[in-house]
C-alpha cells in the first residue's frame, strides 16, 4: 500500500484549487515547508502570505481577508493554530462565520521527538466546543484532498486536522466519497462497533482483521466529520453491537470518544471504550514507540478489547 502524508495532499490540492479559484489566499506562520503550503507559494507567490511566527495575527489577517471576499486557508501546527489562537478563532472567525479554513498539521503524538509541547492532543476538543465550527479529520491523503476541496467550496469556518507522518493511502482503492453527513461504513460485523477518525481508521481496520482471525466480528465506521456528527449512521451501526470502541489519536477527553459518548448515552446507551491518549501530556519518542506507550497501536487495542469483551 502506498504511503503519503496528508499535508502533502493538502499542499497539492491547494495548488489545484488555486488554479480554478482566484479568491483563494493562503496564510502560514513560518512553517510553510512543514505544512506544505509552500507548494502553493511556489505557484502563486502573490496569494501566499507568510505571517512569521505570529499565529494569532495570522488568524486575524485571515479574518480580515475573508471579510473582504477571499477564501482563506491558514496553516500552522495544530498546537499553535488551535491552541495559541483559540480565542480569536472563537470570537472572530467562528462567531462571525467567516470564510476561514484552518488547516492544522502535526496534530497528535505522531509528531514524535519534538515532545509534549508540540503534541496537540486537545485540539479536537477545543475546536468542537465552538459554535459554527466544523471539525474534520481525514483518514489519509486521498480523503484529505476531498476534504480540502469540500471546504473550499463551502462557505464558513473549518478546522481540518492533519498529521505529520506518511500514512497508508487506503481509501483510494475503496473509492470513497467524502460527505460530511455520511460516515463511512468500512466493514460490517455484529458484535463490536469500532468508530474511528484520522489516521486511527487504518489501525481500526487492522484491529478488525485481527479480531476476525480470533472469531470476534467488528464493524468499522470512519467519521472524518466530528462536527457535524452523522448521528444517524452512528445509531444504526451500534444497534446490534455489544461494545462500542472509539479510536482516535487525541485525548480521551473531548474528542471523538466524547462526541460518540454524548450521542449514544442520550439516544442509545451502550458500553463504550475510548481508545486515545490518556489525560496526560505527551513526550519525546519515536512515533511508533509513543503509539505503543499510550496503548493506541493495533496490538494494544486488540489486547484491551479482548480483556473487556
Amino acid at each position: 500500500m502506498i504511503k503519503k502524508a496528508m499535508r502533502e495532499a493538502y499542499g497539492l490540492k491547494l495548488v489545484e484549487l488555486g488554479q480554478k479559484n482566484q479568491t483563494i489566499v493562503v496564510l502560514d506562520a513560518d512553517l510553510s515547508g512543514s505544512t506544505k503550503t509552500n507548494l502553493f507559494q511556489k505557484q502563486f507567490p502573490d496569494r501566499h502570505f507568510n505571517m512569521g511566527i505570529a499565529e494569532c495575527n495570522m488568524l486575524l489577517f485571515a479574518s480580515g481577508m475573508s471579510i473582504a471576499g477571499k477564501t482563506v486557508f491558514a496553516s500552522s501546527f495544530a498546537m499553535f493554530a488551535a491552541g495559541r489562537a483559540w480565542e480569536i478563532v472563537r470570537n472572530t472567525i467562528a462567531h462571525d462565520k467567516l470564510n476561514v479554513k484552518i488547516v492544522a498539521t502535526h496534530a497528535g503524538i505522531s509528531v514524535g521527538e519534538d515532545g509534549g509541547s508540540h503534541q496537540a492532543n486537545e485540539d479536537i476538543a477545543i475546536m468542537r466546543a465552538i459554535p459554527n465550527m466544523r471539525v474534520l479529520c481525514p483518514a489519509d491523503a486521498y480523503e484529505t484532498g476531498q476534504i480540502i476541496e469540500y471546504a473550499s467550496e463551502t462557505e464558513g469556518p473549518f478546522y481540518i486536522r492533519l498529521t505529520r507522518d506518511s500514512s497508508p493511502v487506503f481509501l483510494e482503492e475503496r473509492k470513497t466519497v467524502f460527505n460530511p453527513e455520511k460516515a463511512l461504513v468500512l466493514e460490517e460485523g455484529k458484535e463490536i462497533c469500532i468508530i474511528s477518525t484520522g489516521l486511527m481508521t487504518y489501525t481500526a481496520l487492522m484491529v478488525q482483521e485481527l479480531l476476525k482471525s480470533k472469531n470476534i466480528f467488528a464493524s468499522v465506521i470512519h467519521l472524518s466529520s466530528i462536527k457535524p456528527l452523522d448521528e444517524k449512521t452512528l445509531l444504526q451501526s451500534v444497534q446490534k453491537a455489544k461494545l462500542v470502541v472509539v479510536c482516535e489519536e487525541h485525548s480521551i477527553i473531548g474528542g471523538l470518544g466524547s462526541a460518540v459518548a454524548e450521542c449514544l448515552s442520550e439516544k442509545s446507551p451502550k458500553k463504550i471504550t475510548r481508545i486515545g491518549i490518556p489525560d496526560v501530556f505527551g513526550q519525546s519518542g519515536k512515533s511508533d514507540e509513543l503509539f505503543d506507550y499510550y496503548g493506541i497501536n493495533i496490538n494494544k487495542i486488540v489486547e484491551k478489547i479482548e480483556k473487556i469483551f
Binding site: 521527538e113 515532545g115 509534549g116
Partner: peptide
C-alpha cells in the same frame, strides 16, 4: 536526547 523516557525532552521540560 529526544528518546522515549529521557529527561532530555525535545523541548526543555
Amino acid at each position: 536526547l529526544r528518546k522515549l523516557g529521557s529527561r532530555l525532552q525535545g523541548h526543555p521540560d
